Simulated scan of single mutants.
Amino acid sequence: MVSFEGIERRIEKINAVLAQYNIRDLEEARELALHKGIDVEGLVKGVQPIAFDNAVWAYIVGAAIALKKGNKDARQIAEAIGEGLQAFTIPGSVAEQRQVGLGHGRLAGMLLDEKTKVFAFVAGHESFAAAEGALGITKYADKVRKEPLKVVLNGLGKDAANIIGRITGFTFVETKYDFKTGQVHVVNEKRFTNDNRANVRVYGAESVDEGIAIMKLEKVDISITGNSTNPTRFQHPVVATYKKWCIENGQAFFSVASGGGTGRTLHPDNLAAGPASYGMTDTMGRMHSDAQFAGSSSVPAHVDMMGFIGMGNNPMVGATVALTVKISEVL
C-alpha cells in the first residue's frame, strides 16, 4: 500500500491528474517508470538523501506523465514532470497558489535549453543545498545539451566557498573586489577534482558589491536565490541589483526566488497567514523574481510546510534536471 507524508490531503488531486493520462493509480505510475528502467527513488534520494517519500512519489507521477506523453524534447519532458509535481501541492496552499510544481518543470526546461548559458545558485552563505542542486545538474544536463551549461555558486564567505569546493569537488574561485573601480579580479582558482564536478565554479564574496560583480563577470542568465540566515544581507540585494543592471544594459536574465513563504526567517509570526504572507524574506524575493517558489532552498520539512513536497528547492532543481535527462535517454 502506498503511503507518504500528507497523503490524505493530496490523494484526490493526484488521482484526478493520473486519470487525465489514463494511469490507474500510483502503483501503475511507478510500474511505468520501472518498466523503462528508471529508478526514480534512487535518483531523487541520490540528489538529497533526506528528501521525504512524498517527493519520490511526486517525481514518479511526473515521470509517468512524461512517458505517457512520449515527447522526446527535453524541455517538454521537464514541463510534464512539473505537472506531476504540481499534482502534489495541497489545495489552498502557498505552493498551489504559486504553481511551484509547474515552475520547477519550466526552470529545468530552461536549464536544458541551449539559449541558457550560465546558471547561478545565489545564497546568503555558501550552502550544501546549492551544492546538491549543482551536482544533480552537472551530472546530467550536458547529456542532452550541445554546449555545456555553466553552473556557478555565488555566496558570502571565501572560507565557506573553499570548504564547499573541497567537499564536493568543485572549483573554488578566489576573487578580490576593487571598490574604487567596481571591478572584481580572479586571484586564484583551485580545482578539487579532475572530472566534470570541477566545472562548477564556487565564489565566496565579502560584500554585496562583490557578489554583483561576480554575476557580471560570469554573465549569469538565470539564478535562484535561497533564504539563509542572511536574507537581507546578500542574495536578494545582489540579484535585484544585477537584474536592474541587466535591464539597463539589454542583457537577458531570469530570476527565481526559491525561499520565502510563511514561517521563514524574520517573520515567524506570519505562520498562520498562508498564501497571504508577506514576511520579510518572502517580500524581498517577490520584488525581483520572475518566478517565486515556496519554502526553504534546503530544508525538506519547510518546503512541505508550504503545501509542496519534502525536498529543498535547490536540490529539487537538480533532481528535475536529472529525471528529465533520464527520460529523454529512454525515449
Rank of each mutant, 00 (worst) to 15 (best):
D221L: 06
G211Q: 05
N227L: 07
N230V: 03
K190F: 11
T232Y: 03
T168L: 14
I164D: 03
S228T: 14
G211T: 13
M215D: 08
E189I: 01
D178M: 10
N162I: 01
S228N: 09
T193G: 10
Y203V: 13
K219P: 00
E189K: 14
A198S: 15
K180W: 10
H185Q: 14
K176E: 00
F179K: 10
D178L: 07
N194A: 14
I214A: 01
D221A: 07
E189M: 13
A213N: 02
E210Q: 01
A205V: 15
V200S: 04
F172N: 13
G165T: 08
I224K: 05
K176G: 00
P231I: 02
R166A: 15
T193M: 11
E189D: 08
T232E: 07
V173S: 03
K190G: 01
T225A: 15
K176W: 05
I167G: 07
R201N: 09
E189Y: 06
I163V: 15
F234Q: 04
E189C: 12
E174S: 09
F234G: 00
Q183T: 02
V173D: 03
G204P: 06
R166E: 15
E218I: 08
T232C: 06
K180Y: 09
I214G: 00
I164N: 03
V239I: 10
T175C: 06
P237Q: 00
A240V: 00
V184W: 11
F234P: 02
Q235T: 09
T181K: 07
T168R: 15
